[in-house]
């Protein structure tokens, strides 16, 4: 691994100042489960690594605030998957957090890190998209909020501006009773990168939100507010037509070694159907959420 300077700011202001002065030579370190791999293989060669785990405002934690569940940036997957509120109201996120790597990885990997890598295969992105998550971001100009759908650009690229960092992820508490599920496809049952990752929610008004990743340069959100997709009485052809529309933005790379593009597309459709069914069953089985 190439040497670098190590900074461990204790406040947000200090972190932003370091980022401002170091420019693109700085890299943020949260859980490190992705960054350290890339430092070691040399694909990243920063001069400064800024460890954000000492920043008071970013300390791990999940709290309710003004109708939102707010997950601090350095909260790790282990704590997200175990949190009772996440499990109850954001089931698909709990499920996705539970399949990010192994136990050892989930004990380190943070939600903000998973998002900021902007890997198209990130498993937490689809659940956060269906849950309408907003990122709370701090930078030289102060705080701003970025809807998650406006955050991803393409693999490794986000709309985060220079010297900005994500401080929290905010999820609106469920506006209606809903069921949700996270599903994925991998090459084996043990921990693996997803070749398709998908989350789906269906609420009591028939609103279906479907988000998917690993089938294009960024995760995609599709919404059916007609109620038809979630309605088992809707004719098959009509539901498939809606799915055609929701899945139209999938464009898997033909160059991937993890799965062929036609297989990915077929699996996306299988997961979408299963996701709608699974979310609907959960909706039917619960009185809340």
């Amino acid at each position: 691994m190439q040497p670098f300077a190590y900074r461990r700011p204790s406040s947000l202001a200090e972190a932003v100042a370091i980022l401002e002065s170091s420019g693109p030579e700085a890299r943020l370190l949260a859980g490190g489960t992705d960054l350290i791999i890339r430092l070691r293989d040399g694909t990243l060669r920063p001069s400064v690594v800024v460890d954000v785990k000492g920043v008071a405002e970013l300390r791990p934690g999940i709290r309710e605030d003004d109708g939102r569940l707010v997950i601090a940036a350095t909260t790790v997957m282990t704590d997200i998957m175990a949190d009772p509120r996440v499990r109850r109201d954001f089931t698909a996120l709990a499920e996705a957090a539970a399949v990010v790597g192994s136990v050892q990885i989930r004990n380190r990997a943070t939600l903000a890190g998973n998002l900021c890598n902007a890997s198209p295969a990130a498993d937490t992105s689809p659940p956060l998209l269906i849950y309408d998550a907003t990122l709370v971001v701090h930078g030289p100009g102060g705080e701003r909020r970025i809807p998650l759908d406006a955050f991803f650009v393409r693999s490794g690229v986000t709309t985060l501006a220079r010297a900005e960092l994500v401080t929290a992820i905010a999820l609106p508490l469920p506006p209606a009773r809903r069921g949700a599920v996270h599903l994925r496809r991998t090459r084996r049952r043990g921990h693996d990168l997803a070749s398709v990752t998908l989350a789906c929610s269906v609420d009591e008004h028939g609103l279906t939100r479907l988000a998917y990743g690993s089938v294009g340069p960024r995760p995609v959100l599709g919404v059916d507010d007609s109620g038809a997709l979630a309605d088992p009485a809707t004719p098959e052809a009509e539901r498939e037509a809606i799915l055609d529309r929701l899945l139209a933005d999938a464009s898997p790379s033909p160059r991937s070694m993890r799965a062929g593009p036609d297989y990915r597309l077929a699996m996306l459709r299988v997961l979408a159907r299963r996701g709608i069914q699974g979310a609907s069953e959960r909706l039917a089985n619960r009185s809340t959420t």
Binding site: R188, R189, G190, L193, M257
Partner: peptide, 24 residues
């Protein structure tokens, strides 16, 4: 093993060469 056109091994290492885990 998966090779590229130049005959390089694309899936060198543990991330893309999968062996059975306790869940497999």
């Amino acid at each position: 093993y998966i090779f590229d056109d130049a005959g390089r091994i694309r899936n060198l290492g543990a991330i893309d060469y999968r062996i059975p885990t306790s869940m497999d």
